[in-house]
Design a protein around this nucleic acid. Structure first.
Lengths: 338, 338
DNA sequence: TAAGAATACGAAAACGGTTAAGTGAACTAA
DNA sequence: TTAGTTCACTTAACCGTTTTCGTATTCTTA
């Protein structure tokens, strides 16, 4: 690898001059600057990012935390899209992204925070994780610029999908299609679930909808089997709903299977709606009506906020950014007005 | 951040002693070593990875290249699973992974190779990319230990899913279910497509199957619309196939839609099979029979090979590793023997 | 024309580690 | 006793940058 020293020798100047020339300091003559840059280019010079980081305390590297459980991090449609967008946003600003982990084979395990400190990440994004674990708590208190997704900590910027608006829009859409008996199988307890559930009730009240208790139940996110069971239960009700909302699209597929197994047709006999708007749901019959998250914007906003926190720590405020989703209209919800 | 210097002062020894104590060199007394480690621990010492890398020329960081086109990199089930497995494998060995890109905002764009050199990656994995672009060519010739997935370059280790075995197993499975009129909609031209297609023909010959030309056609990978059209064409044939193979599971959904639209039932009236074995395909009806790639093993083998190349460059041979898949038996292929 | 300012560059320390070579003390062996 | 080892630790150079002070030269300006 050719270093500044090599260039300085080739140019007959000091390495200080080379450094300043390449960084466009203004105490270097225009001629010299041009010459040094030309030589650097010809010699194929590339800055050594470790050396630079060591000296400047800036790595231009962002740590991203993804749950380590399978089926929930990288391999989940929603998170993958958010990450992709986040990645593109920060890379455009000259940052790289590295996954945070706690492996560190050679000695004993280290904590997430220790990993981040050791790597000198300029900032970190917590995309999906067990937000209630002590390790995550330690991480967010570690004084590294941080942004979280879909979870709120004190004093930490967060980008959230607007679950209140989302559920409201979705329920209103279904209501306007003429449905009055609407069931909601919500996900396991969490801040996100709380938002959606309370928005569901509030919107229902505003619309003058009656929601019997038996219409509300729980199935964990992405659990097709549980959704299948709960759907069966709903179908057995004497006064069964005309539409069922699911925790997410994946779970909705479990429900759809139950419905088909009963010989019912969607949306003729019963309607269903999902949440997330994953890609595949638009390509299979029935195409699933769902609240599509704006994953592109979620990732972008998170990236922009984080970089702002890194580069302008004094003037960037800690805030919560809400990103609206929109109803993706498939053909799984019948229009009862027709 | 507490450094070795701080510890050396606290312990009344030189920083060299601290370094050697923490790295378990054997020219440090047992007592001293224990004491230094204890103090380091109490003071919350963490090694500065940039400083270490600068001196040792080892970053313990691996660059991973993912296609930058949407719908094909991170956000694709297959690649996401491979990456996840790769990530877990190398992290267990103390390596971190960082995405390779060519953004570098502040000055003009840099090439992938320049990015890797600048970051000092110990090794790189090319998971999915346009393997024929000049930038990738430059990258693989860059003399950084490299492993590619699903593509073969001279002098570069590659981990490949065994498409020959895969197609053979899948076709044989279908044959054994009694099917004799089998159509294959293959993907766009590529090394992978070539392998599968030639294996399809060879296996068919071995089984004594007659494959009319009209049974073979092309639809790009993951293109539901194209698969839909080709399926319609096949359904219109006077002597239509009893089973259709698709380029991948995603495309298969397009085909399934076409079949359902014709009022045909799967697998009663016609059978279908996919390729990849993506998760969602196991949760919707009909559950899709597909050749499931062993993404876990693909990622793991790639990780192990790469680390071996990094740590034992002399004794590790450049090779191609084939990873077998297996037939995932859904209920989309009818048993005609019954 | 001499003093002050501006210009263009260099010397050297520093960032936080690693490691080859050196050193003093205690220990061994003839 | 003494030279040679071994042990335990220190010195100092180095990795490739950045940046603070200098400083020598040229340019202003009174």
């Amino acid at each position: 690898m050719v270093s500044m020293k090599d260039i300085s020798i080739a140019c007959g100047v000091s390495v200080a001059t080379v450094s300043k020339a390449l960084n466009d300091h203004n105490d270097i003559g225009a001629e010299t600057k041009k010459y040094i840059k030309k030589v650097a280019d010809e010699m194929g010079y590339l800055p050594n990012s470790m050396a630079k980081a060591l000296k400047t305390n800036r790595t231009y590297n962002i740590g991203v935390l993804f749950a380590e459980e399978a089926y929930s991090g990288l391999t989940h449609d929603y998170y993958a899209f958010v990450l992709d967008s986040f990645k593109n946003t920060v890379e455009e600003k000259g940052y790289d992204i590295t996954f945070i982990n706690s492996a560190k084979a050679r000695s004993e395990r280290i904590s997430y925070l220790e990993h981040c400190r050791s790597r000198g990440f300029d900032g970190i994004a917590i995309v999906c994780a067990d937000f209630y674990s002590p390790e995550i708590m330690q991480l967010v208190r570690g004084n590294i610029p941080t942004v979280t997704l879909d979870h709120i900590f004190n004093n930490v910027s967060a980008v959230m999908s607007n679950n209140v608006q989302g559920m409201q829009d979705l329920l209103t859409y279904i209501f306007e299609k003429g449905h009055r008996r609407i069931a909601y199988i919500h996900g396991a307890d969490s801040a996100v679930t709380q938002s959606r559930l309370s928005s569901f009730y509030r919107t229902a009240a505003q619309l003058g909808l009656e929601i019997p208790d038996e219409y509300i139940s729980m199935a964990p996110y992405r659990d097709t089997t549980a959704a299948y069971k709960e759907t069966m239960r709903l179908l057995d009700l004497k006064n069964r709903p005309t539409c069922i909302l699911y925790p997410d699209d994946f779970a909705a597929f479990g429900g759809i299977n139950a419905i088909k197994e009963r010989g019912l047709q969607i949306p003729k006999d019963i309607s269903v709606a999902g949440y997330d708007g994953i890609r595949i749901a638009r390509h299979i019959e029935p195409t699933l009506t769902s609240l599509a998250q704006n994953t592109q914007k979620l990732g972008q906003k998170a990236g922009e906020k984080l970089i702002s926190l890194i580069e302008h720590p004094k003037t960037t405020l800690i805030e919560r950014i809400l990103v609206d989703g929109h109803v993706y209209e498939g053909n799984s919800v019948a229009d009862l007005n027709a």
